[in-house]
Nucleic acid binder design. Sequence first.
DNA 1: TCTGGGGTCCTAGGACCC
DNA 2: TCTGGGGTCCTAGGACCC
Length: 418
Amino acid sequence: MIFYALCDANNFFASCERVFNPSLNGRPVVVLSNNDGCIIARSEEAKRLGIKMGEPLFKARETIERHGVAVFSSNYQLYGDMSHRVMNTLKQFASAEIYSIDEAFLNFEGIPLETMQEYGKQIVRTVKRNTGIPVSLGIAPTKTLAKVASKLCKRYPKLEGCCLMYRPEDITKVLSTFPIGDVWGIGRRYSKMLKSHGVETAEQFRRLTPEWVKAKMSIVGLRTWKELHGEACIEFEHKTPDKQSITVSRSFAKELTEIEPLQEAISTFTAMVAEKLRKQHSVAGQMQVYIFTNYHREGSPQHYEGRLVQFLTPTESTLEMVKAASAALKELFRKGYGYKKAGVILYDIKPNTGIQATMFDEIDRPKHKALMQTIDTINAHHGRSTIKVGSEGEVHQNRNHTSPRYTTEWSDILVVKV
DNA sequence: TCTGGGGTCCTAGGACCC
DNA sequence: TCTGGGGTCCTAGGACCC
């Protein structure tokens, strides 16, 4: 039997803030989305106060003030770096498939069943010691069951962060009290639909016929059903697949009514998205530029529109993309609207090897390529935007609760007083 | 006053081809 | 009067994940 382990960092962003600021231990902590809009991470204490995932900050304001909740703007430099550290530790124990910033599947093939539980606990202890981040490890015969097991760790502290689940009678027992909506692959819609048919737990879901599940939830739902029955359908990915689309988008602190600041924002997003593209050694054939008014404001005029740009020759050049994005924005922009959000998406992404140039290509590709490489190298060494395109500008966002970039900026490193 | 950002996959229906 | 069948590609929309 093959075993999958899922390692999930507990309240990851909140835990990252705590590593460098121990006075936060025991206190409720929340981390905000970009622009300080929503709450996107909560410590256990904050969850117990009833603060919800995705809740707008202003709605939780009263609870926050009453209970002295510590509030942080998101600090992705810190979280990204801490994520690296956690993943590198995990890779010392087993081959790892990084699933998200705070989760990884581990391939436990070949580890003897008798030692598996202890091995798991050792991983949890080592990650905590090396990085300061608490993690939960669930081990089971399928990825979906491993996810269930990892959630049990959080429910039962005596498991010491590691739960091995494989005996059919144990699985049945666990699933009969496991809410259907907490199963990986069952979202809000399906959860509601299943409940309307009397299915409240994962075990009740398992007892449905596969025909019914497939008819109502397509082959994706059927796959979840099989996985809960112990049949592994979602395999271990040995290498990270290239992205098929890459996005950069942001909301703004204030609504933008003029085209100039939007131009600057779009240029900045385009440069960022192009850099991500080159990082995975790809080129893009299509680019979408879009702008949004504030759809939360009823009564004010709304405009949402995107333009799809086709590149005759797939490109990786920031210069070419910025020029095209700028032209697209000019077509989109309408006077008299307040724009709250904008973004750039790249599609039709392929490896950058063997690009077929068209006959009337006006761009000196080798020259652009060399320029981009130079810019990327300099920016990697000296910090983002050391070199940028002239039309890029500051994107104004709310960030009123930032923590230091403890691990990635010399000026922000903690000083130990003796 | 204040509401995130970045992804994937599947299905259905229409266009189009032979 | 009778009006096929099979395949591919594209897109929009809907579901999900973190």
